[in-house]
Design a protein around this nucleic acid. Sequence first.
DNA 1: GATGAATGAGACTTCATTCAT
DNA 2: TATGAATGAAGTCTCATTCAT
Lengths: 208, 208, 208, 208
Amino acid sequence: MKESALQKLRENERQNRANHILNAAKTVFIIKGYKNATVRDIAKEAELTTGAIYAYFKNKDTMYGEVCRLVFLDLYQHLESTLFSKSGTMLDRLKNLFSAYIEYDDEYENDTALLAIDYRQLKIDKTLSEELSNLLSRVLDYTNLIITDGIKNGDLPETVNSKQYALTLWATVEGFLYLNGYGIVDHKKLKVKNLVNDFLESFYRGHQ
Amino acid sequence: MKESALQKLRENERQNRANHILNAAKTVFIIKGYKNATVRDIAKEAELTTGAIYAYFKNKDTMYGEVCRLVFLDLYQHLESTLFSKSGTMLDRLKNLFSAYIEYDDEYENDTALLAIDYRQLKIDKTLSEELSNLLSRVLDYTNLIITDGIKNGDLPETVNSKQYALTLWATVEGFLYLNGYGIVDHKKLKVKNLVNDFLESFYRGHQ
Amino acid sequence: MKESALQKLRENERQNRANHILNAAKTVFIIKGYKNATVRDIAKEAELTTGAIYAYFKNKDTMYGEVCRLVFLDLYQHLESTLFSKSGTMLDRLKNLFSAYIEYDDEYENDTALLAIDYRQLKIDKTLSEELSNLLSRVLDYTNLIITDGIKNGDLPETVNSKQYALTLWATVEGFLYLNGYGIVDHKKLKVKNLVNDFLESFYRGHQ
Amino acid sequence: MKESALQKLRENERQNRANHILNAAKTVFIIKGYKNATVRDIAKEAELTTGAIYAYFKNKDTMYGEVCRLVFLDLYQHLESTLFSKSGTMLDRLKNLFSAYIEYDDEYENDTALLAIDYRQLKIDKTLSEELSNLLSRVLDYTNLIITDGIKNGDLPETVNSKQYALTLWATVEGFLYLNGYGIVDHKKLKVKNLVNDFLESFYRGHQ
DNA sequence: GATGAATGAGACTTCATTCAT
DNA sequence: TATGAATGAAGTCTCATTCAT
């Protein structure tokens, strides 16, 4: 029993340190991008040596993948509060969901996309790779949920294909963030959040 | 005078060879991605040697930037035929424009995005960098043109902000392509082109 | 006095643990070879941690050397039973000796050679190094003993140089094992033991 | 035609440089042993930089394998002169063959064995690995040839199993060299060559 | 004594870039 | 201009060894 408690403590410690490294990695990857970030950079950021890193992560690519996972999980935690407040109209719920999404993206300096961008080129375990794919598509599920609710409530006609509707919404939001990332959205006048809200309304009207 | 003609000839020759290399680079970058493409790969594809490349391009990053430019220019040539046929409704013209855009993306196996993705991390001349930014936003101008025409023709109410409308359309299309690139769009049932067409219609209806 | 008894006990305890580690090391070195065996591997095999190892052994090379010594000591214990049964002809005694040697080698899957192979490249104390050299040549002494007995008994003419005779026998046996280790001896038809026995007879006949 | 000639010239150049590197590697491997030799050492010995090495050899292990091959090929060139002089008795021919073998080994400071020792642990192409195995057993074929000749000529009775005879001879020679490598053969009094010659005679007598 | 996290040197390897020919 | 060998810096990763707990 004692043994098991000790083990748990140690495992916890280990997990903490791994997270510490992962956070350092996140910082570095966001600042320098995958290509230019070196393991040494990450080690320095974590106040460790290169070798220490490898006690926790198999290699750079895996770290990158894990950072992506972390960001996704963070994101979903951020979104879930919004999601499960079933009060309000469908439109409000969608606005809330995407606002939360956009806020999160803002917080990480528009680098959600940057992070997620090409994990398919990485040498990572299939398990992790698949998990990332799943996580990537989870927003869709969230959105879909709200929309099917909307159809049930009569917010949208029954003829609406909820999956396609959800996909379209998400595509637009991702698109805005993507363009915003390239500095194409004029920050002074238009903010992504407003753009999305306007879009949600027009698109909604188009389905009445 | 003669000298100048000769010079022009030489300059032409040089330009041809540079283009030849650029095409090889495009091929390699699309297949392998920026990270994994080596200058040697490009040289081999161009049936040249490493050293020769450097007579035409300052460095790998510049080549990558130039490839991006090439792709954009190609794209715009592809789009322009569509653009300037001012016949048809606004909706038809938009559909044509984006169809052409999507077709082009298909042709390059969804790697337009892949190519364009992070030229901001590259060490390239400011000139080139700015040109890429401009090119990137040119589709917007195209779209905007069609929409202002639409407003003039009464296809859309005058209250519509054409820039925002255009931005939204483009965002959605980019978003679809982005998601499609990640395999999130179900290819068997939904095609990007149909998704976009459906979207254009709903969005249009939403503004009546 | 009491102190000394306690000390002895402790020293014993320590010796036991060192032997435990050494056996683990032997296992790992035989399976993985010196090059590929890591101290961590050994620690794991001994159900200890890396650090603990260093309380007993100065470094990896020393461990390797000690393993070699252990193997030699084991070997000689294995051989000695044979040796001191002075019954039988010289030829029989030699056959018995080498049979025992070969059996021992078999037991460790032909890795006697693998173990002994290059302790001279190791960073180990001169004492240990010299001891290994001595141990290595001890078989020679054994063989020599039997042969001088044989000469006394008239099994071999007095003109025979016993040292050279012994050296030759041993060389051949080692050679067979070495070739066998490389898979050069055809296992199905010829077994090392038979080859050695045949050899011993022919060589013996050649000295009559 | 000219092109092909140029290519041949270049290929030659390349081969020369590869050989130059290989010789440097041989030197380093012999002095330091596989384990302690670094690619940097080899590069320095070849008066090149590390990177240059990799233009010629895939990796360290492959270089080691190639060095082994080189040594074998050299050896066989050295032996072949001897081999094909079919004059002399079987015994003389065998003495010549093994003398040549031993001389070669001497020349390389007893490191034939050292080199050949564990190429099976290396990460090398199967092709190379198999070639090394073949080369390793070629001496056997040579020996066998002389012995079958000997049987034909009546030097040995027909009942002798030539393969076993050959294997035994070779085993003994290898064994002597092996022991000699460990400093067990007393250099001042006994020389390997003499030991082998004496052995060959006794063994031969044992088969009459 | 034992732990195991951390160190730090050094190994192998890759590749953009240069330069003598 | 073209060649391609060579450079050299940087990268990823491994592991014997140390040390605070």
